[in-house]
Write a protein that binds this DNA or RNA. Structure first.
Lengths: 224, 224
DNA sequence: GGAATAGTGTCTGTCAGACAGTATGTT
DNA sequence: AACATACTGTCTGACAGACACTATTCC
């Protein structure tokens, strides 16, 4: 049996926190689906590994330095007919970033904007990107529970309140500030104290932390 | 920019419990890596969706009816040079099955065997299949905590002790039978009683259960 | 009866949820 | 001073880990 030819792309679910959880979408400049909204992404080059392609596309579409952004593979999608031109398999990546500037349009994207994921059901994206976006949001929500992923939405140095705001916005819930404080400061390896404080949230100065070395949260955060 | 041609394969991490946690490997019958051990898998056909290709390959390599096997996507792998012939992206799938008969060799596999994952470090698999296998085992171990995945290793009807044995073998740990019993019977939606009993494990007859409708375990099982 | 496994009850320590109270900034 | 936010302490209920005890089968 021979092997049919495929094209391979990477697509990006880029999430950030503005006043709520938002995802980056771009208006397509070329066919197919020209003029419609889609996830950023593009073809993998002949000599390029998949994570490299994802980071390259991210840089092209957002102008973001790769170092400051958490990026991880989400899943592969390859239904026949998902691209009308030819057989395309896409590897979707999930990227999480602190509040970003208004996105700059990339080369093959005429326009870009942040769409609140709350309005996700009302969005119609090109290809099967609705599904990919939904999978990415669900992944992010789930991983907040058992990993330090929430710190990826924060600046390098952050307060406990800022971290709590991440959980509240991503989960669309309210958490008790005092119990949250006790929990995260008591979880070994989650937070690394800097010794500095800030009053940028108002009120009494808060400790500034960096993310610790823990990769897994035991016990996990509870969505309540 | 144009899109370079790729081949797309699916590869399978098939896990089962024999006396310990085992993975299916096949001896390759064709180049490259002819004669070496690899994960079962093959090219995705021109008109085939990825999950269909995975189920087809699983049936071809194990002769298993697709209904009785849990299968889920693991990840995509596409480093340049991972196949010396041409640029290949593979979508790996994780399949979990109850104790299977000795595998029957498929069409393009000269031989097949179960390898205990405990001996994983000593195994040299073709391509990047060591890495894929390790990722699959880690996924299975992690998902036992917060999903009813352990039931996928059991026959359709099983006892609490059989379910406990799954956890003990996959996690390579010992669990207290009494606390385990209290925990799983108290988790809503995990077990559906059949009303029947069995003495196949010896001793007092045990209730037989089917898996319940729960997709997520709250609270999760703890690896202790 | 003895051995083996199934299942229940009880105690104890830990931790999450609730919330009172104190500390330290800004205005 | 009033206010806002940071942080600590305390109570309570739920649950995990430990393990004694009872139940029901096979030999």
């Amino acid at each position: 049996m021979d092997h049919p030819p495929f094209a391979v792309t990477v697509d990006l679910v880029v999430l950030t926190l503005r006043d709520e959880l938002c995802a980056l979408v771009v208006r397509r400049g070329i066919e197919p689906y020209a003029g419609e909204w889609a996830l950023p992404g593009g073809f993998v080059r002949a000599d390029e590994d998949l994570p490299d392609a994802a980071r390259r596309e991210l840089a092209e579409e957002t102008g973001l330095a790769p170092g400051s952004v958490h990026i991880e593979q989400l899943a592969g999608y390859g239904a026949p007919g998902r691209d009308p031109r030819l057989r395309v398999v896409t590897i979707a990546y999930l990227a999480l970033a602190p509040d970003l500037p208004v996105p700059s349009a990339g080369t093959d994207a005429a326009e870009a904007r942040w769409v609140p994921v709350r309005a996700l059901a009302a969005e119609r994206l090109a290809f099967d990107h609705d599904r990919i976006l939904a999978d990415g949001v669900e992944r992010a929500r789930a991983k907040l529970e058992y990993s330090p992923l929430a710190t990826a939405f924060c600046a390098p140095e952050f307060t406990v309140a800022e971290l709590r705001r991440v959980y509240e916005l991503v989960w669309d819930t309210r958490l008790d500030p005092r119990n949250f404080h006790r929990k995260v400061t008591g979880t070994a390896g989650l937070l690394a104290p800097t010794g500095r404080t800030t009053t940028r949230d108002g009120g009494r100065p808060a400790q500034l932390y960096r993310r610790g070395e823990a990769e897994l949260l035991y016990p996990p955060m509870l969505r309540s």
